[in-house]
């Protein structure tokens, strides 16, 4: 508890932790295979292909078939990690995710790469800001948004141990390694990374280290902000949410659409069980051209924006 980001720490691309972990597991678990849509490079699976050439299945640019083939591989006893850019993996293959993976309870691990606005300048076709809203609406689909390399590794291992479909939402945006006094990852469990009792900031993925930075700024003003890393969006950690609501104010922040994602999941629970003033930070819809970091700053998805939202909310505390 009470973790902060390491000062002047190095920044990491979580894809590296993803492929390192899959390779490590594949060395001892013959069931593990990787399925890609011509995305060996962007998924960083070149080494996996070299080590396990027969277990890298490249279907070419065909996402519907990729997800269907993934479900078939699971039927054949494999544990497929189906990797592709989140925008195409989720949107293009949505019915396959619903019918072949979730409704069929197939043991498929979907790994969305370069999610959020990582492909900033390429525009909204290549942004994946709707994916969490879409996938958490599907019954039985576990949705995990890791925040740093350690959590990415834990999520991959937990997804492998979990029988059923999982969506792991990865970025290519650099993030620091977060410090944890009591590191423990469990699907459906969140963690507190900064203590505080005046307001709760609930974040995941690339937003967690920014939320911690905001909490430190608020602490210097005498405002206690609790930062909760809600890596699993579905199923969501309702016990943690009930506690968070007791602070009297909740800010959510995600690198995704404001509607229907992490903020929506928190709001659904709180509205029915623990009504509390909220602010939901995210993108309002299709966003203009610009780099990922520019877009995050422009839409207040940075430490300053999070702190501002928290300050504004304090006056509305229940």
């Amino acid at each position: 508890m009470g973790a902060v980001t390491k000062p002047d720490t190095a920044m990491f691309d979580c894809r590296e932790a993803y492929v390192r972990t899959v390779e490590e597991m594949a060395a001892t678990d013959e069931r593990i295979v990787a399925v890609v849509n011509d995305s060996v490079g962007s998924s960083k699976l070149g080494k996996f292909r070299d080590r396990f050439p027969h277990r890298l299945i490249n279907v070419g640019i065909a996402e519907q078939n990729m997800v269907g083939v993934g479900a078939g591989l699971a039927n054949g006893g494999k544990v497929p990690f189906v990797s592709g850019a989140s925008c195409f993996l989720t949107a293009r293959a949505m019915e396959q995710i619903k019918a072949d993976c979730a409704y069929s309870r197939a043991n498929v691990k979907l790994c969305g790469i370069s999610s959020g606005v990582a492909y900033g300048e390429l525009g909204a076709t290549h942004h994946s800001i709707e994916d969490v809203a879409w996938l958490r609406a599907i019954d039985g689909m576990t949705v995990i948004v890791p925040s740093d390399p350690w959590e990415t590794e834990q999520a991959i291992r937990a997804a492998t141990a979990h029988e059923g479909p999982v969506y792991i939402r990865l970025s290519r945006m650099p993030v620091p390694a977060l410090e944890r006094s009591n590191p423990h990852f469990e699907i459906g469990k969140s963690e507190i990374l900064h203590e505080g009792g005046d307001v709760a900031i609930i974040a995941n993925g690339t937003m967690v280290h920014r939320a911690i930075k905001a909490a430190k700024a608020l602490a210097s003003e005498g405002v206690g902000a609790r930062v909760i890393n809600m890596a699993t969006v579905s199923p969501i950690d309702t016990a943690m949410l009930a506690d968070a609501a007791k602070t009297g104010a909740i800010v959510t922040v995600e690198e995704g659409l404001k509607q229907g994602g992490l903020g929506g999941a928190v709001a659904e629970f709180c509205a029915e069980n623990a009504p509390v003033p909220m602010r939901v930070l995210g993108f309002p819809g299709f966003v203009p051209t610009g780099s990922a970091s520019w877009l995050m700053d422009e839409f207040g998805l940075n430490a300053a924006g999070i702190a501002t939202a928290a300050r504004e909310l304090l006056g509305k505390r229940a």
């Binding site: 295979v33 027969h54 277990r55 299945i57 519907q64 078939n65 997800v67 269907g68 083939v69 993934g70 479900a71 078939g72 591989l73 699971a74 039927n75 054949g76 006893g77 494999k78 497929p80 019915e95 396959q96 019918a99 072949d100 409704y103 069929s104 197939a106």
Partner: peptide, 24 residues
């Protein structure tokens, strides 16, 4: 083997099953 109904789903899953068999 897999839930079907929407058309165009069973065949890709069948291909995945056959790939698993080919690997093994």
């Amino acid at each position: 083997e897999t839930n079907t109904g929407p058309l165009g789903h069973g065949f890709p899953v069948g291909v995945g099953i056959a790939v698993a068999g080919q690997i093994d």
